[in-house]
């Protein structure tokens, strides 16, 4: 399944109320490292059933980014049962991404 595009309108339903761990990728089109990370996130989304992958475009969702204190991108936030449990800044490997949600 492709990564779910998340906005402030569906953040609660898609992320906070999800039935499995969610990794949210905060990104922007002008951010080179974000664009390097995006295909990895898509690949995880297609191949790993144990986690849900969501993406937030910070240009469109500045308030959502600000609510979660995002000040560097790419930022990955991991939610379990509606709680923020882990986060990471910058490009990391596929394995490191999956480890965040362990």
């Amino acid at each position: 399944m492709a990564a779910t595009v998340v906005t402030s309108a569906n953040f609660e339903a898609e992320v906070l109320k999800a039935d499995k761990p969610v990794i949210v990728d905060f990104w922007a089109s002008w951010c080179g490292p974000c664009k390097m990370l995006s295909p990895v996130m898509e690949e995880i989304s297609e191949t790993e059933d144990s986690v849900k992958i969501c993406s937030v475009n910070v240009d469109d969702e500045m308030e959502l980014a600000s609510n979660y204190g995002i000040s560097s991108i790419p930022s990955l936030l991991v939610f379990k049962g509606g709680q923020l449990v882990n986060q990471s800044v910058g490009v990391i490997t596929r394995q490191a991404i999956l480890d965040l949600a362990r």
């Binding site: 951010c31 080179g32 490292p33 910070v58 980014a65 600000s66 204190g69 995002i70 000040s71 560097s72 991108i73 930022s75 986060q87 800044v89 910058g90």
Partner: peptide
């Protein structure tokens, strides 16, 4: 890092 400290102004300046 990611909480105020950055090494890339063009990436993170807008925040």
């Amino acid at each position: 890092i990611g909480k105020g400290v950055s090494y890339c102004a063009t990436c993170d300046g807008m925040f």
